[in-house]
């Protein structure tokens, strides 16, 4: 559900910019924060707040990869696989995480806890290989550090034991 406060923030944004239309991206961010991905309701709320058609908003939402078109895991792991991380063996890191989480890149665990994705250069080239969990950076990664990270996340999510 998109809350009334969220809708109000979208309307405020529309008047903050010189042209209301510019508020479409921040409003989509708000909608996604509310619901975890871009839903039909989210599109509608943005369209109403900024006075655009739903199709118009949708065409923008589908251009940018950060607006998710379907539900994601609670923890979204983005492993950078661009050149600087590649030269520091990010592929082995991705494979390690695939084994640990028992999913392939691009998938979400059946319990809905983790999504594992590969990402284009995340501006952590000098501390490669690097990944992000829900936007937070983890750099100079090794398989051991990746395991420790998943252990900590498991604990946070209340996951007892992963087989």
């Amino acid at each position: 559900m998109i809350s009334e406060q969220a809708k109000q923030r979208m309307r405020d944004l529309a008047s903050r910019y010189p042209v209301a239309r510019s508020a479409v991206m921040p409003s989509l961010h708000i909608a996604q924060l509310e619901e975890g991905y871009i839903t039909a309701e989210g599109l509608q709320a943005v369209a109403e707040a900024i006075n655009l058609t739903i199709d118009d908003v949708e065409s923008i939402a589908t251009f940018y990869t950060m607006y998710y078109q379907r539900p994601q895991g609670k923890k979204i792991i983005h492993v950078c696989t661009s050149i600087s991380c590649y030269l520091r063996n990010c592929d082995a890191l991705v494979e390690h995480l695939e084994q640990r989480l028992q999913i392939k890149r691009g998938e979400t665990t059946p319990d809905g806890n983790y999504s594992l994705k590969t990402a284009e250069c995340i501006a952590a080239c000098s501390s490669a290989p690097a990944l992000q969990v829900n936007g937070e950076f983890y750099e100079h990664m090794t398989n051991e550090r990746a395991d420790a990270l998943i252990d900590a996340l498991d604990q946070e999510l209340g996951i007892e034991r992963r087989v």
Partner: peptide, 21 residues
Amino acid sequence: HRGAGAYICGEESALMESLEG
């Protein structure tokens, strides 16, 4: 203004398009 995942928006004219919504 926060982007939303598109390398091309670093190109100056695409950045302005993006800013314009």
